[in-house]
Simulated assay, not measured.
Amino acid sequence: MGLRSALFAAQYDAAMRHAEHEELSSRRAALLSGLRGIVYDVGAGTGANLPYLPPSCRVTAVEPDPNMRKRLLARVGPANAVRVVDASAEALPANDASVDAVVFTLVLCSVPDQAAALAEAKRVLKPDGKLLFLEHVRDAGAHAAFQDMLRPVWSFAAQGCQLNRNTVAAISAAGFTVDERENFTVGPAWLPVNPMVRGRATPGG
């Protein structure tokens, strides 16, 4: 597990470079624009969101994987006012109703307990806070069956990533109202990580 985790972290940025350039970076920028106050970037990975978080934000980057966190810390640098913490999505180091925004980008697919992670986000968010997400999700029909079939091998190779989670439904089930949603694809539609979704949700409702 340790070696696989290290190899995955080492190749992650290179593997994502094309998708980031073609589709994801512009959507990260749109998703995170206008944020202010206390922001928790959960499952921050190697720090792909950092360039798009406004400087007015007080950012806590949560990353439990030590290999990812090493690269995240290098990207933050000493001059960047970002706090990096070793914590899980299911146990955020924040008080109840104390956070202005919780950000999940390409992480709700791989958290061990998605429902617990979303409940934890709801716990720490202020009543007028925002849940921001950019995720790949389960499709329908034949493509969903393809995702189901591929899931065990994909999960082993991609550090627990699950191809077939119905993440938007899970967000609603956790007590959030999805206020904004964009569905899109990265590369050919048949790729197992499609479809993808970008959106914003608020607690309650």
Rank of each mutant, 00 (worst) to 15 (best):
A87M: 00
V111Y: 04
A142E: 14
A115W: 04
F156G: 03
A174M: 00
S26F: 03
R71I: 01
D179H: 04
I38Q: 13
S26V: 03
R83E: 15
S26P: 03
D86N: 12
A157G: 12
A29P: 00
P93E: 06
L73R: 14
G47L: 07
R28Q: 10
N194A: 08
M16E: 07
R198M: 15
R4V: 08
V85R: 09
A170C: 04
A19P: 02
A157W: 11
L131R: 01
D86T: 05
F176Q: 04
D13G: 06
V76W: 08
L3Q: 12
L131W: 00
A170Y: 01
L53R: 01
I38F: 14
G129D: 07
Q11R: 14
R151Y: 01
L31C: 05
L108C: 06
M16Q: 11
A201F: 02
L72K: 03
S88C: 09
A174Q: 08
V168T: 10
H21Q: 12
T202D: 06
R71A: 06
A201R: 10
A14Y: 03
A74I: 04
A9H: 11
H21W: 07
A174D: 03
W190D: 11
A116E: 03
L125Q: 10
R27W: 02
P188M: 13
Q114G: 15
F156S: 08
H143V: 00
K70N: 13
S5G: 09
V186R: 07
V99N: 10
R181E: 15
P51G: 09
A140E: 15
E182D: 13
S5R: 13
A79Q: 15
R75Q: 10
G141V: 07
Y52H: 15
R71Q: 10
I38D: 12
A170G: 05
A144K: 12
E120F: 04
A158M: 13
A142K: 10
A81Q: 13
Y40N: 06
F104H: 09
C57V: 03
G77I: 12
D148C: 09
N49F: 10
M68D: 00
N194R: 02
P188F: 12
Q162A: 11
A173G: 00
D13M: 09
P64L: 06
R83I: 14
F104Q: 13
P66R: 11
R198H: 04
D13H: 06
V59E: 01
D139P: 03
P64V: 07
